[in-house]
């Protein structure tokens, strides 16, 4: 099993697309840094206008922690898309290259084969999220320095500098679970359609649709929200609320774990029943 996992990881990190995705993620963070370096003060000055009417505000408002928090907003669409570009390939590349037949004729349990791929997928998501977290945080801290973070959730939250890193790490850990859940769904589509592009397009379609329904909360859709996976993805934001609503976050984690189990079970079933001639 260990050898199988290592082989999958070797294949994963031998692919150019893996490094391309890392490069795009880092580029995204650099663009966010540069944009806010230029217009950050003006933007936050505007947003804090209702407060500045009544208060003098002093301190490093646009700081590295704030930038890293804003960079996490790429978790809505950009990061999930980048992740599935790689993770779907882990499964469907075997079909596209025709190596699946050779693979299935080996004296290895199919469950072990797919388990190794799932572990490789999870490893990639973890590594990718850590790279995103560090590339969002470290250059921003060098450029903008430290400070308290103003968060626009449920009013205006002033997150104190000493508590920020803990919250940030928890949000990243939560997002790893979200991204594994999304990758599991993409994995199922990759196995079902045996094609990377189809799997990516369907997953992106579902992501966009779910985000749209969630963003435009019309009366008709408002009751559907708890059934949307993006509704639960978004709970990373709650780590940046003054008093973290633990129960809401636990519910979201349970939803995401169930989603992972559901798609992993479907994928394993699909993979085990697959004919070698398919």
């Amino acid at each position: 099993m260990k050898t199988l996992i290592l082989i999958e990881l070797y294949k994963l990190f031998k692919s150019n697309r893996t490094y391309l995705v890392f490069a795009i993620a880092i580029l995204l963070m650099i663009i966010i840094d540069l944009g806010l370096y230029k217009d950050g003060d003006e933007l936050f000055g505007y947003l804090l206008q209702p407060i500045s009417e009544n208060f003098f505000i002093e301190g490093n408002m646009v700081n590295g922690y704030l930038i890293s928090y804003l960079a996490l907003n790429t978790l809505w669409v950009h990061i999930p898309i980048l992740i599935i570009i790689v993770t779907t390939h882990i499964f469907s590349s075997e079909f596209e290259l025709g190596t699946i037949k050779t693979l299935l004729t080996q004296p290895i349990e199919r469950t072990e084969l797919i388990a190794a791929k799932i572990v490789a997928m999870i490893c990639f998501v973890i590594i990718f999220m850590l790279v995103v977290a560090l590339s969002a945080l470290l250059p921003a801290l060098v450029l903008f320095g430290f400070g308290d973070v103003i968060v626009f959730i449920d009013g205006i939250q002033f997150i104190q500098q000493p508590t920020y890193l803990g919250r940030y790490m928890l949000a990243i850990f939560f997002s790893i679970i979200s991204m594994v859940a999304f990758s599991s769904m993409a994995m199922f589509f990759a196995l079902y359609f045996r094609n990377t592009l189809s799997a990516i397009l369907i997953s992106i379609g579902i992501l966009i649709l779910s985000t749209l329904i969630q963003t435009f909360i019309f009366g008709f859709f408002s009751d559907w929200q708890p059934f949307l996976f993006t509704y639960h993805f978004a709970k990373w934001q709650l780590f940046f609320v003054d008093t973290i609503p633990v129960k809401t976050i636990v519910n979201a984690v349970i939803f995401l774990l169930v989603m992972i189990l559901f798609f992993v079970a479907l994928s394993v079933m699909r993979f085990k029943k697959m004919q070698i001639t398919e």
Partner: peptide, 23 residues
């Protein structure tokens, strides 16, 4: 103590997580 307009207005543009408190 003073009059204050509530601060929810700009949040709609950038904060998607709303509704933890009734305003």
């Amino acid at each position: 103590t003073f009059d204050v307009k509530k601060f929810k207005l700009p949040l709609k543009f950038i904060g998607r997580e709303q509704g933890l408190t009734e305003y």
